[in-house]
Every structure is written in structure tokens, then in C-alpha cells.
Amino acid sequence: MSMDMDITLTVNGEAVSERVEARKTLVDFVREDLGLTGSHVGCEHGVCGACTMRVDGVIVRGCLMLAVQCDGAVVETIEGLSDSGEVADLQAAFEQRNALQCGYCTPGMLTAAQELLQQAQANNAVPSREEIREHISGNYCRCTGYHAIVDAVESVAQERSKARAGAQS
């Protein structure tokens, strides 16, 4: 059986066909083969969350999936979420509150936070600070102490909730 495989997938809306080693993780694939270096490698054992990205609409650890598993999948990285404008308000809130210092955890943190905000949207709810803290507890930040990140996510949750209410009235 071959150690290399051909895969075809959609990455940030673009069709991608590549030959990859079976052993290559998804995060190494997007970084090395596609040049999408916004997804970061922090621990390669699923703890730090720096490689958080979306596969078929849900967040995953990019180090705990193989690229070959994503044959046929839809993969979204921070570059895609940025270019589409989907997380523009969240990015602005992070910048406004200095909710990042070195920025290495930030793409994963934003991607994780966006999933919580989407769930809140679906449930028409605003997550509490405690819920925000719990949801981002799979994403390690050594710089900020998390307070500013919680502030930023909370503010966007409130703004999006207001926008929802406005759209409904």
C-alpha cells in the first residue's frame, strides 16, 4: 500500500489537489504544501489549540487529523475566515483590546471563539464570561492571561446579539 496519496479538497473556497504523505497532519499540510501559515503548530499532541481550524464546518485540532482524512472535505483556516470577513468584528475587538500579544495563539483562538459565537447565534443567546472562558480553555495563551480575550469575545457576543435584535425588530 502506498505511503503517499492523492487528495482533493476545498480549502478556503479554493479547489486543491495534492499528493501527500499519508503521515502528514492537516496542519503541516496547510502550512507546508499550501503556504497557509496562519495555522500554527504549538504542541502536536492536541493540547495547545494553536492549530485550530475548521473542517466541514466544525473546529478541529489540525495536529490530530491527517491531511489524507480531508479528501473531499471543506477546510477553512484563519486566512479564509479573514478574507471572507466572517470574523472581522472579532478581529477588530481583539485588536481594540490588545487581546493578543505575540499573536501565535490568535488564529486558533479566533477560530474557536467564532464557533462559540455561532452557537450563541443559533440559540439566540449571549455567552457569559464563564462560558467564554470554558469554551476557549482548549486554546493556550501564554501572553495575555486571558482577561482581554474574554473581554473581546464578550463584546462581540453582545454586539452581534444587538444586531440580531435589531434585525428582528
Binding site: 497557509l36 496562519g38 500554527h40 478581529q91 490588545n98 499573536g103 490568535t106
Partner: peptide, 19 residues
């Protein structure tokens, strides 16, 4: 005032040595 280099980092457009 916000840091001028943050926008690059929030977009995943930083350039770390590992990149």
C-alpha cells in the same frame, strides 16, 4: 492606542521563524 502590528497577526499573516 492599538498596536500597529496587530492586524497582521489577527489575520494569520504574521511571519514567525517556523513559517
Amino acid at each position: 492606542v492599538p498596536r500597529p502590528n496587530l492586524h497582521r497577526l489577527t489575520q494569520g499573516r504574521g511571519q514567525y521563524v517556523s513559517d
